[in-house]
């Protein structure tokens, strides 16, 4: 595994008057790290800090030895960064290839022939080669998400910060992007905020869970899943007070405080561990 090591130490960041993100220390050294948490838990705030878009009020972030609060070092971090914003950040009026060319120029890739090669490569990675000449406004939601990922890949960054990269994608596309992230994780440090805990568990070596602006968990996916040990069962009818999903005809997978009499305990997944931790949101 390679890519820079990110070291986070006792971060706090206020957001408005009612919300403060507090993150204890954790280290992300190569591979992929999933940031999980309910809506409004501070995932985007944390990702923006890690992507050097904002600066922490207290605490510190280091990317290898680089300090993002020092302008020159922040630029050095950005030279190896690929970022996907939660809102895609796509200009509707531009063509797909024009947009890649624009982001390539922002990433100081030149000359234009080299930018075109990077664009062709990145669009190929996310399966958008066929729409390179199309206007962005004509793309579907899934295509827009994949284009947002493609721009992050321009220049071959070894630090990827991705805010909900699987949002708006169907199951097949999520599988393809998860596969792509698994491949990239061999050479890069990937930080990814997601609601698809189980799908990204196979890619991520570590998980950070945020809840109400606090860091509620940091550890491996297996350790997170183990938190639900004894709290997961399968039954023929949904159990009151538990979160249940259909897993087959007349079969429900439930997470709750304790299984009802006669229920068959099941092996917990990463999502089960997450649900146990955040109090069944």
């Amino acid at each position: 595994m390679s890519g820079p090591t990110i070291t986070v130490t006792s971060l706090t960041q206020r957001h408005g008057i009612s919300f403060t993100l507090r993150v204890d220390s954790f280290v992300s050294a190569g591979g992929a790290t999933a940031i999980l948490g309910p809506n409004g838990s501070g995932k985007t705030t944390l990702l923006r800090l890690l992507a050097t878009l904002t600066q922490p009020e207290t605490g510190s972030i280091r990317v290898d030895v680089l300090d993002p609060t020092v302008p020159v070092e922040r630029t050095a971090i950005r030279r190896r960064l690929g970022y996907v914003a939660q809102s895609n950040g796509l200009p509707d009026r531009m063509r797909v290839s024009e947009f890649c060319d624009y982001v390539g120029a922002l990433k100081e890739i030149g000359p234009d022939r080299l930018r075109r090669r990077w664009s062709a490569w990145a669009l190929d990675r996310v399966g958008l080669t066929g729409v390179a000449g199309d206007r962005i406004r004509t793309l579907s939601g899934g295509m827009r998400r994949r284009l947002a990922i493609a721009q992050a890949l321009l220049g071959g960054p070894d630090l990827l910060v991705l805010d909900e990269p699987l949002a708006s994608l169907d199951a097949e596309q999520r599988g393809e992007i998860t596969g792509l992230l698994a491949m990239l994780a061999a050479d890069a440090n990937i930080i990814v905020a997601t609601h698809h805990a189980d799908e990204l568990a196979s890619v991520c070596g570590r998980v950070v869970v945020l809840n109400g602006g606090r860091m509620a968990f940091v550890g491996s996916p297996a350790e997170l899943a183990s938190l639900a040990e004894g709290h997961v069962w399968e039954t023929g009818i949904p159990t009151d007070g538990a979160i249940c999903r259909a897993v087959g005809p007349g079969r429900f997978h439930c997470v709750g405080v304790s299984p009802p009499p006669g229920a068959e305990t099941a092996r917990p997944s990463v999502a089960d561990g997450y649900l146990t931790l955040v109090g069944h949101h």
Binding site: A85, L90, P91, K107
Partner: peptide, 18 residues
């Protein structure tokens, strides 16, 4: 006014120049 603003800030080109 610029949907690419966040991505632009994350890029190495400084905002001043842009």
């Amino acid at each position: 006014v610029d949907p690419t603003h966040e991505v632009s800030i994350a890029a190495p080109m400084d905002g001043f120049r842009l």
